[in-house]
């Protein structure tokens, strides 16, 4: 039975709990364990990695095109933000965590200091170069030290 709260200063508020249909839909006690589900997901993500590599390649190429397109700064930043935002949310699932981190930095910089990027176009170029580099070297074990410092160096460049 819904409870009615009413006092002279308050809005009329009804508080209630709707029927819990998820309890019926999600059974308890059987089904694969969480570990088994994670193993299965790892296999499926690995199988899709080469397909995602092409998606990532296309996205980075589009971002480079935007940079030289001559678009007005707000449009350019919005286009780059949209691409980087997708990469940030997807890349690590397919085995590109460094690419996702650099994409996150791009989003952060565009969101937080757009004026600085407008005044210093070289900083956007630097971020895109870092994204390309991360994509090419994500799985290159000879570049571990550079990979470790890539995101930090972007942060430092933005602070300069």
């Amino acid at each position: 039975m819904p409870k009615k709260y009413d006092n002279t200063n308050a809005q009329d508020v009804e508080v209630y709990t709707p029927p819990n249909k998820l309890r019926e839909a999600i059974g308890e006690g059987d089904g694969p364990s969480l570990g088994e589900m994670q193993k299965m997901a790892d296999q499926l993500f690995r199988a899709s990695q080469s397909e995602y590599r092409l998606v990532l390649e296309g996205a980075i190429a589009r971002m480079k095109d935007y940079l030289v397109s001559g678009d007005a700064v707000p449009e350019l930043q919005a286009e780059l933000y949209a691409e980087a935002h997708d990469i940030k949310g997807q890349a690590s699932s397919f085995g590109f965590p460094l690419v996702a981190q650099v994409a996150e930095r791009i989003c952060f910089s565009i969101r937080e200091v757009p004026e600085k990027l407008e005044a210093r176009p070289d900083l956007l170029e630097l971020h895109l170069s870092a994204l390309s580099w991360a994509f090419v070297n994500q799985h290159n074990d000879d570049k571990l030290a550079e990979k470790d410092t890539l995101v930090r160096s972007l942060r430092e460049a933005m602070a300069s």
Partner: peptide, 20 residues
């Protein structure tokens, strides 16, 4: 992690404009 849930009867709608 040892507790098991069965999601096979769950009916979901997902919306996202990104294919990937």
């Amino acid at each position: 992690p040892s507790h098991r849930y069965n999601f096979s009867d769950l009916d979901i709608i997902v919306v996202d404009d990104s294919e990937f």
